[in-house]
Amino acid sequence: MKDIDDDVIRRALGHDTAAFEMIYRHYAGMVYRVAIRVTRSAEDAQEVTQQVFLSAHRHLGSFAGRSSLRTWLYRITMNCSLNAIKGRRQHEVPWEEGFDPQDPRHDQRENIEKESRLDEISRLLGHLNSDQRACLVLRAQEGLSYEQIARALNINLNTVRSRLKRARQTLISVNEEKRGGL
């Protein structure tokens, strides 16, 4: 995906709403689809998209060409998405605890899933913790390099590598179980 013209950014800095709308049109799809995968909820992803662009609008001056606008937006998107998950964590059963059908919280989890109408990919991503999910979405869905992921999540390269390994290993096991269950 091509970054938007510097000229548009410059006009948006001068408080030109039409220019900022061009930035929105250019990047909203990317922000939304990342947020939807990381939060696994369309409702949260809309809220995150709104936060990301309001924050970008307010702080566009601090961006000042230190990275590409796209990289900067990935970073804000990840920050907002991970915050959205933290904010609702008290209502959610963490997936990393493992799945126990006898657990009374099982019903609650099912309800949450029904409510947010999660599709198959979201369900698959639900087997990962949010940090692993963030790394894998940026890599497998968005095609970012390790360097870019490290910058978007403010972590080092070895952490990117180990989260990707654990994420993929988990999903391979999930796929194997699914096949075994057929």
Partner: peptide, 13 residues
Amino acid sequence: DAELAVSAVPVLP
């Protein structure tokens, strides 16, 4: 990875 790449199809809010 192929499963996840499917979801890179643009979706607009």
